[in-house]
Amino acid sequence: MASLLLNVNGDQLEVTAPDHWTLLEVLRYRLGLTGSKQGCDKGDCGACTVQIDGEPQLACLALATLCEGRAITTIEGLMPAHLRAGGKGPDPLQDAFDRCGALQCGFCQPGMLLSAKALLERSPDPSRDEIRHALAGNLCRCTGYTQIFQAVELAAAEAQGRAPTPPAWHPDGNPWMPACSKAPAKGESR
């Protein structure tokens, strides 16, 4: 048993865990951060993706003890970071996933979001191909990926201040709900 000092979502946390525990186990079973999913638990699926020093990596194959001194971001950290930066509501990428219906069961979604978020940080207006490659290590058994790609494109377009490319099934314009931050106040109609 060793005492570890971990930086998770901006908080310095002291946790006790044996050397053979993975970061995923510490997040889920010591810190109660169950947003990072335990899928295959051996590197195949990407459901456990977290950001380590800003880079999407697999928590199921990272030893927790080797993550000391590194900045860990989990899905639980996205919205608070957005609010701290003065934003409203969820992170715009989370909002875009919601508006595009970019999930069915949702199991892949925390990992998808952390991979996609890092992509938008290094490449704010990515091509469809760049998105596909950046998300190649995040498997989704439900959606068929199309809405996920569209959600990333929607978030990128709105961050650039332009309208998203209309999807093939709705060629006449933007079929998506307005962003949360633009949503009308209570009582107002959309």
Partner: peptide
């Protein structure tokens, strides 16, 4: 090799 997360690690 593998996927993007694994190539970073």
């Amino acid at each position: 090799v593998a996927g993007p997360q694994l190539r970073r690690m």
